[in-house]
Structures are given as structure tokens and as C-alpha cells.
Design a protein around this nucleic acid. Structure first.
Ligand SMILES: [Zn+2]
Ligand SMILES: [Zn+2]
Ligand SMILES: [Zn+2]
Ligand SMILES: [Zn+2]
Lengths: 141, 141
DNA sequence: GTATTATTGAAAACGATTTTCAATAATTAA
DNA sequence: TTAATTATTGAAAATCGTTTTCAATAATAC
């Protein structure tokens, strides 16, 4: 939390924005869950701990967390964006169970390297990627 | 077009649906473009050639093309689904240029195999996947 | 031809996201 | 500390792609 608050404050200062209790509270709740939350879910969690924080403020704070590198957006293809920790969290991809919606985080450096190589061979300079594998998890097979 | 119309008709028969001129026209326009079109874009193309075909009919026909395996849905993460040919088109992934929005189709069997292997090693039974690599294309670097 | 039932298309509903705006609060300068 | 400045808040409304509704129409079966 310490380091993350510092990053947020640095970002806020660098953009001429303002430190507010809401932003600090929303960040603390975001960091307190390891789930991949939507803005609505995050708002619900925030309301549990702190009253009177509006959905719009949560939405806008997530934008700031994205820009400051504290948060990563995930799109599992159901029309709702989800968000997870990004600072100090390694890049990873997701296995998504089509039955129970479980998200399993995976990372294989060999696959990552091959993706990068394939893109470069085609004259493309990759900056980011997203790999999602859909199927059935161990419990749902 | 021949083969695809047959597939559509077979699907329609198998589900107790009805052959309509709209469905045939929409399929023919869909097949006539190699772009990755949204429903709106496809509707615009359809209207150019055939008047009086409503957006909803295009939307619903795309659903049927998806179910019958003639069409594949692509999600490049901008909130709008796009659709491309699926029949007789190999599975592939996409390089997406973040500057000019160009979509480059790519396929590397080694990467595909490694993805499958990685998922299975984690007790997961993969049924589909989506890989998108974002970056700059040759022209935009 | 008639009866049955799917299809069409305009309009409305939907749901997530984004914007608006007046009141409020954080920061800066006096 | 106070006043001035300007970003922030949050409820409500707007937006936008998608999906449903429903009455009129058209495809199929008999
Ligand atoms: Zn599962
Ligand atoms: Zn994750
Ligand atoms: Zn480009
Ligand atoms: Zn493609």
C-alpha cells in the first residue's frame, strides 16, 4: 500500500491533480482484493467500507489507476471490463472457464518470446498483448 | 458463395427456420468483403446494395452465421464486436496497430501447440482462444 | 387456398460507460 | 488565516453498442 500510494500521489502531482480522501480510499479497497473486479463490483466493495462514495468517482479513479500503472484492464469478452493489480504484478495471461467463469492466471516465458518473435518477423513492433484461453477448468470438466 | 449458401440453408433446415431473401443477401454482402466488419458497417454495406433491409435483421443474421460456423466474432477491445469469414478460413490471431488500426492476420502452429500444452498442464481443457498483439505496424513505426 | 408459425424492421429497452453540471473541497496566493 | 482559484464529487442524464418487443408480413406445411 505504501508504495502504491506514493505512485498515485506522484502521478497526481505530475498532472496537477488533487489528492482527495476518496482516491486514497478507493485505491486501498482496490488493493485489498485479489479478484478481477468490475467498476460496479469495486464500487460495492468501496461502499461496504466507506459510505457516500459515488460510482462515478470509483469509475474515474480507476481511469487514474490505469494511467499511473497501478491497474490493468481485462476484457473477458462479456461486455464488462475488469481490473486487477498491475504494480509489482508480473504480466500474465488468463485461462477462462466457460462454465464457472473462474479466471486462472498463467505465464509461460517461451510462449511470450515466441509471440514477440512472430510479430517482429512481420515487421511489427509489439507493445502489449492479450491472450485468453477459453475452456473448462479442472472442477468443471 | 455456393458452398456457404448450402451451409446456411442446411443450418436453417436443421433448426426449423426459414429461408428468406434477406438472409441470402446479407450473407452475400458479408462474403464480398474481406474486412473485419462491425454489425453497423455490415448494415451500411448491405444498404448500399439492397434497400430496405433493417439493422436488426443484419444483427440477427450475423447470430445465425456465427451459429452455423460461417462467421467468427473478433473483439479488439474497443467495445464493438467485429466479424470475419470463418468457413474455409484457418484459425488465426491478430496483430493490431495502435496507430492506424490495421489488423494483420497471423498464425504460428508452434505457438498454438504451446498454448494448448500449457493449458492442459494446468488441468484445463481449452476449447478456444484469442490472442491479440498490439503495437505499431511496418508503416507506422 | 388456408392455417401455422417464423421473420421483419421500427422502436423501445437494456446495460456498461461516459459526460454534464452545480455544489463542494483542495490548493495557492495574499 | 483568509480569499481566490480551480479540481473534484456525485446524482442525473447522455451515449453507444447490443438485445428485445410487437404488430405486420411472408415462408412453409397441409
Ligand atoms: Zn470452471
Ligand atoms: Zn489476472
Ligand atoms: Zn499501422
Ligand atoms: Zn482475422
Amino acid at each position: 500500500m505504501h508504495k502504491e500510494i506514493e505512485i498515485l500521489d506522484a502521478f497526481i502531482r505530475s498532472k496537477g491533480l488533487r489528492r482527495t480522501p476518496q482516491r486514497k480510499k478507493i485505491l486501498s479497497v482496490f488493493l485489498s482484493t485479489e479478484k478481477h473486479v468490475s467498476t460496479q463490483e469495486l464500487h460495492r466493495l468501496v461502499r461496504k467500507k466507506f459510505r457516500n462514495i459515488g460510482y462515478t468517482t470509483v469509475y474515474r479513479t480507476i481511469r487514474i489507476l490505469l494511467q499511473s500503472g497501478l491497474c490493468r484492464e481485462i476484457d473477458i469478452g462479456d461486455g464488462t471490463s475488469r481490473y486487477e493489480h498491475h504494480y509489482n504484478h508480473r504480466h500474465h495471461d488468463h485461462l477462462i472457464c466457460i462454465k464457472c467463469n473462474r479466471l486462472i492466471e498463467v505465464m509461460d516465458p517461451r510462449i511470450e518470446r515466441m509471440q514477440e518473435k512472430m510479430a517482429k518477423e512481420r515487421g511489427f513492433r509489439p507493445t502489449a498483448h492479450r491472450l485468453e484461453i477459453f475452456g473448462l477448468c479442472r472442477e468443471c470438466i
